[in-house]
Design a protein around this nucleic acid. Structure first.
Length: 258
DNA sequence: ATGGTAGCGCTGCTA
């Protein structure tokens, strides 16, 4: 099985890139973030014509998450259920069982600046996510928590840590939030497979960051043990960040034994 | 060249 996380930065704007990518990628499950559209506008028919069932959770002009699968879409949920969401109204979590694995697709709040109340609520959002996981799932089940986490787990996951002083994405509390998820029973799938590659998946549109190599690894997949033992590969499709009207994120692709 | 680009949607917000 092959699964992918990709922040598409507007699915409407990105369909000319997403459709040919999906046609060529031989991907079983594609989890996207920042569709920036309503459920009504989501092009489920176009994906169905390509053999993919889908579930979308959107609100309109911002956020929006979706799961596309050619191995089934079952038991879908969205949001934190009964838990209070510090970003109430934002569409940032959708989940489904595909091919026997529970996929939880998240678009973690950016946090904007530190300090700020947006940053504070980002940390609360992570607390809710951990509570949500614990309340609804077990580290013994096959589960993948993936998406745009808006946190670089380690210093080596940004192009130059000295340029990130007083920035979001690299602070201790944000990294502690990821550690809490790992402690629950999750493994960083990219690092489990390839300890050397930089794994950058996001390059800001501004300042020619992609061509200057100023990237960050913030698009992550955390997996439980039953999935981790099936991992055979992980890579970033940098070609998808090149060419006409790319997203500012590249797809991160993971392979499992069947 | 005094912070750059992209998307949404129409003014400025979000990233």
């Amino acid at each position: 099985m092959r699964f992918t996380t990709w922040n598409v930065a507007s699915l409407k704007a990105r369909m000319p890139r997403v459709e040919p990518w999906l046609a060529a990628a031989d991907c079983d499950v594609l989890c996207v973030q920042e569709t920036k559209m309503t459920d009504e506008a989501f092009p489920a028919d176009a994906f169905a014509a390509m053999g993919y069932e889908s579930v979308h959770h959107g609100e309109g002009r911002w956020n929006g998450v979706a799961i596309l699968s050619r191995v089934g879409v079952e038991a879908t949920t969205h949001g934190f259920g009964g838990l209070e969401d510090p970003y109430e109204g934002d569409a940032r979590l959708v989940s489904a069982v595909c091919g026997g694995i529970r996929f939880i697709d998240v678009y973690v709040p950016n946090g904007r600046e530190v300090p700020s109340e947006f940053y504070d609520r980002k940390l609360v959002w992570f607390e809710r996510l951990a509570e949500y996981l614990d309340a609804n799932h077990s580290p013994d089940e096959p589960l993948v928590l993936l998406g745009d986490f808006n946190v670089a787990p380690e210093d080596r996951d940004v192009w130059d840590i000295t340029r990130f002083t007083l920035s979001t994405h690299v602070t201790g509390p944000e990294r502690d939030a990821l550690a809490t998820l790992r402690d629950w029973g999750l493994t960083d799938a990219f690092r489990a497979v390839d300890g050397e590659a930089d794994g950058f998946s996001f390059w800001d549109y501004r300042g020619g960051d992609f061509h200057q190599g100023r990237g960050m690894r913030i698009d992550l997949a955390y997996v439980t043990a039953p999935v981790a033992e099936r991992l055979t590969g992980a890579r970033v499709d940098r070609d998808a960040r090149k060419g006409e009207k790319p997203s500012d994120h590249a797809p991160v692709i993971f392979d499992l034994t069947d």
